[in-house]
Write a protein that binds this DNA or RNA. Structure first.
Lengths: 354, 354
DNA sequence: TTTGAGCATGTTCGCGTTAACACGAAGCCT
DNA sequence: AGGCTTCGTGTTAACGCGAACATGCTCAAA
């Protein structure tokens, strides 16, 4: 083989497998009649370039369709301007909203984001994601994953890599940004108590989730503080089906007048079960959810729920991470974003006891 | 040669602002007593390395915590092994599911993905995203955006960059992967007609969306083919509120016995309106949605809907793009993924006419 | 006039990696 | 034995960029 390449056309788009490459600074420089360093200065927006020269260079760039090679830039500068995001498949409403706001906040800060999916939340998969991360061109990482999976994973992140953890309060090495789960659950529980309900039942998230645990704890503490009975927890897994199953159980018990579901999806399933069993909401049973997903206002009846400020969570986590990358702040802060209760039509005064 | 011997700690983490860098191949090579080329061979998994040497190198890598510098790799090879994704904020269920499956498919193909968010679907924002994309380290792009915004955007993508478009059938320059909207809408409409309904009403998506347009057209054609009346379209915007508003209008009309909502969220709003107006579903009115989102099975009543195979859409689009990147296939194919009807409890036989 | 400060621009070099080639040591054929 | 391939390994160069330094020019102060 080995074509002697006599033609030497600088195009680089050989018929053979040769990789086509775009024009480089040198090409632009030649076109504009300047040195490549001057092209670099224009490209990076330095001010110490003559206006005349600058416009010549810009014209050359446009003509050749030049776009800077970020790999070379990153290699030179040691910075990728890129943030990695480790998360489970985008199945949960909260994660998505968080991701969304992170994406926008990152873009505003001049960073792009790379998704590192973890198809199945097993420890092994998490380890794989972390390994993959090690090979990734990122300046820092935001992790949106149940914390104990991180703790248990024996793989460790590259020591120097800044990390921010979202949505799971581990008390540990990394800064944490999260919704104030405890405050939200208290809001929900107190709302029901204030409506005159003797106590509040709870359909929780899975034991594997810190958020779920926090909400359950806070619900429990709130009841305790008010001196009320603590009904047994019905453990769910965030899914509508779990809510439905919980609802079937609860509707058999005539004492139940108020239920706090740990998320809106389970509240939806719960509502369905109550409808099917002929229990009226909020006439006989009041229901509160958690998340305030877009659809909640159209549930039947429209759901009273705890609104999470995902935008703020995203913004803060990016902010924290970028500061860490710039080595401005390293201490392991914990930042809790408060929630607010959105009262709709699924809650009402306790029915008069029979 | 000639190591300056005295100060010269090769750590690189100076007290001054100097950038910390991880160990390079050269460091590993020195540690293992081989050349850096051999380290490269081990790192890239070549087979022509002596077992003994390989394990020495691996040990050195582990000891120093070496991780390959992807920037240098990309610079050298001209490939980033990274796919850019342009999409609107993750507000729609379909986009999220698609993104999710793309992320996984890309990971399996050895590519990472970079999100390029477009906060507001205006032409200007799209242009900005495209510009930003130009500076991104991507080998190809998947666009999940209403097509006409692309057409109207006068910014053009770097000519050489492979592109695949999802979720909007533009008849154009780029390969398209999409759910077969027409087939799905036909399925929904025919299902209702087969149940004996005289005709089917439609709450559509926004005019700006190709998917919405396709579904509306197909609904219309199906009615035409069956020789039925064509009720006026109620135009929505995918939101539950739009479905609710549509429902209020429809429930005033006693002739309405069957409604096809262009997505599940609008179907949800529609259901609420019908409940509020005391119209029973499916007793008096049957409802079909489109998407089969996770929650749909827990609506009240559980929603009959058109299931989209988002996984397949994502898989195919990645597959197509990767093939284009490898220059294996360039023609502008269009790939439609069929849907299937999921019959639940929101549809039933037409009521006997009064 | 001399000196030097300020500015636009050019030149050199190295970031970490891998393709291409070079080389010596085997093993296998005539 | 001589020539051939195969195999493990080393050497060199280049990918595109930008920091650091060098150059030459202008203008103001001494």
């Amino acid at each position: 083989m080995a074509p002697p390449s006599q033609g030497s056309d600088s195009q680089g788009s050989d018929s053979a497998g040769r990789r086509r490459r775009g024009p480089s600074m040198a090409d632009v420089a030649r076109e504009a009649g300047v040195s490549s360093q001057t092209v670099s200065r224009v490209s990076t927006g330095r001010t110490n370039v003559d206006d005349d020269t600058r416009s010549r260079v810009l014209a050359a760039m446009r003509k050749l369709g030049y776009r800077p090679n970020s790999a070379a830039r990153a290699l030179r500068s040691g910075q990728f301007r890129n943030i990695g995001i480790i998360m489970f498949t985008l199945s949960s409403f909260g994660n998505i909203r968080t991701l969304d706001s992170i994406a926008i906040a990152a873009a505003n800060a001049g960073y792009s984001i790379t998704l590192i999916p973890v198809p199945h939340p097993t420890q092994g998969e998490v380890s794989i994601a972390f390994t993959r991360l090690g090979e990734q061109a990122v300046d820092g990482v935001i992790i949106i994953i149940e914390a104990h999976l991180i703790d248990e994973a024996d793989i460790e992140l590259p020591a120097e890599l800044p990390v921010v953890v979202v949505d799971s309060s581990l008390d540990s090495r990394y800064p944490v940004v999260d919704t104030d789960q405890a405050q939200g659950a208290r809001l929900a529980t107190e709302h029901l108590l204030n409506l005159g309900h003797r106590t509040v039942w709870h359909i929780s998230g899975p034991a594997s989730s810190y958020s779920a645990e926090r909400r359950r704890e806070s619900w429990s503490r709130t009841l305790l503080a008010a001196g009320r009975d603590q009904p047994p927890v019905i453990e769910g897994d965030w899914s509508t089906d779990a809510g439905y199953r919980g609802g079937l159980i609860l509707s058999e018990n005539p004492d139940v007048t108020a239920v706090f579901a740990a998320n809106d999806q389970m509240a939806l399933g719960l509502l369905r079960a109550l409808h099917e069993c002929g229990r009226s909401v909020p006439g006989q049973i009041s229901v509160v959810g958690f998340d305030d997903m877009q659809e909640s206002s159209s549930f039947w009846p429209p759901l009273t729920t705890v609104h999470q400020e995902f935008d703020e969570v995203g913004r803060h986590s990016v902010d924290l991470l970028v500061r860490a990358i710039k080595q401005e702040a390293t201490e392991a802060t914990t930042l809790l974003v408060p929630t607010r209760l959105v009262v709709r039509a699924s809650t009402g005064p306790a029915p008069q006891s029979t």
